[in-house]
Amino acid sequence: MSDPGASHDAHHRSPNQELGMVLFIIYFALYAGFIAITVYDYKLLGKELFGGINLAIGYGMGLIIAAVALAILYAWLAKPDPVEPNEAAEI
């Protein structure tokens, strides 16, 4: 008999959750790197990357592009759910 006090049945990871977690960690590392540079040496962000674009603009744009690229990758790799029980309907 399940105990309503704890959520023990909710934690079987689906392949999509595993994939999502990997992509999340990759993006978080990129994001944290940006914050770390900004906090510890913001002048480093003034270094020119190419064609007059500094690291601040390049990294910031890069984070936006990375989010879009990882989202598309996730949509491409994600597996369809075997069953789609709408648990909400049972509430």
């Binding site: 999509n16 999502g20 992509l23 993006y27 989010a67 709408n86 309907a89």
Partner: peptide, 20 residues
């Protein structure tokens, strides 16, 4: 925008399955 990464990779599918 970064916040949407959390929404997609962590929250979106389970929250849909659980809620009404």
């Amino acid at each position: 925008l970064a916040g949407w990464v959390v929404a997609l990779f962590v929250i979106a599918e389970p929250i849909k399955k659980l809620g009404k």
